[in-house]
């Protein structure tokens, strides 16, 4: 498992019904491309996060397939439509099978 993987998300805690909100995510991850060699000349095996999904109350906002050309500490900024109060969930899928999750409540008032 990749070490010290920490997800960070920025989500507003409240919104008006139907409002479009901006969301930012950043996760600490080396995103080892599989193109690099170590000091001994051996190829360092690929080890990346290959998919990122954001959903609100189970409905998809964005679903991204990621390749090794995504930079270290993957960053995404996108927008979501918030129809009602609920939970914004974020999921990152690692090559090694690990799944990293984060969620935030958004209150519509």
């Amino acid at each position: 498992m990749a070490e010290n993987v920490t997800p960070r998300v920025r989500v507003p805690s409240s919104a008006s019904a139907g409002e479009t909100v901006t969301i930012k995510t950043l996760i600490s991850h080396q995103m080892e491309s599989g193109q690099r060699k170590d000091d001994a000349g051996n190829t360092i095996p690929r080890s990346i996060i290959n998919r990122f999904v954001a959903a609100f109350n189970g409905e998809t906002v964005i679903d991204v397939t990621m390749e090794p050309a995504i930079s270290t500490n993957p960053y995404f900024e996108f927008q979501a439509k918030i129809p009602e109060s609920g939970t914004m969930s974020f999921t990152w899928y690692d090559d090694d099978g690990s799944v990293y999750e984060e969620s935030k409540e958004i209150t519509v008032g």
């Binding site: 010290n4 920490t6 960070r8 920025r10 930012k24 950043l26 600490s28 270290t72 500490n73 960053y75």
Partner: peptide, 12 residues
């Protein structure tokens, strides 16, 4: 600070 990846180190 959210866009600055150095914040990961600060939080650690």
């Amino acid at each position: 600070d959210f866009d600055n990846p150095a914040t990961l180190g600060v939080e650690a």
